Computed example of a mutant assay.
Amino acid sequence: MKLLSFLYITIFLIGCSNYGQLTFVTKLPKAVKENSGIAYYSNEKAWFIEDHGNDDVIYQIDFKGKLLKELRVKNAKNHDWEDLTHSR
Rank of each mutant, 00 (worst) to 15 (best):
M1K: 14
K2T: 12
K2M: 11
K2V: 11
L3D: 14
S5W: 13
S5V: 11
F6N: 10
L7F: 15
Y8D: 08
Y8N: 10
T10K: 11
T10Y: 14
I11L: 15
F12I: 14
F12V: 11
L13D: 06
L13H: 09
L13S: 11
C16L: 15
S17D: 08
S17M: 10
N18D: 14
Y19V: 13
G20L: 06
G20W: 07
Q21W: 06
Q21V: 06
L22S: 15
T23H: 12
T23Y: 09
V25C: 01
V25Q: 07
T26V: 07
T26A: 13
K27P: 01
L28G: 02
P29V: 05
K30G: 00
A31T: 15
A31M: 11
A31G: 06
V32A: 01
V32E: 03
V32S: 01
K33G: 02
N35V: 15
S36A: 12
S36N: 01
G37P: 01
G37E: 04
I38W: 00
Y41N: 06
Y41T: 02
S42M: 08
E44S: 12
E44D: 09
E44Q: 09
K45Y: 15
K45A: 05
A46K: 04
A46H: 07
W47K: 05
W47R: 06
F48P: 00
E50P: 00
E50F: 00
E50D: 00
D51I: 04
G53D: 03
G53N: 06
N54Q: 13
N54Y: 12
D55Y: 09
D56G: 04
D56H: 13
V57H: 08
Y59I: 07
Q60R: 15
Q60E: 15
I61W: 03
I61E: 02
I61M: 02
F63A: 02
K64H: 08
G65K: 09
K66L: 09
L68Y: 01
K69T: 04
K69I: 02
K69S: 04
L71M: 10
R72W: 08
K74G: 03
N75I: 03
A76D: 09
N78T: 02
N78L: 01
N78R: 02
N78V: 03
D80Q: 01
W81H: 03
W81Q: 04
W81I: 03
E82I: 04
D83N: 14
D83C: 12
D83R: 08
L84R: 05
T85L: 06
T85K: 07
H86C: 08
S87T: 12
S87G: 05
S87K: 09
R88I: 13
R88V: 13
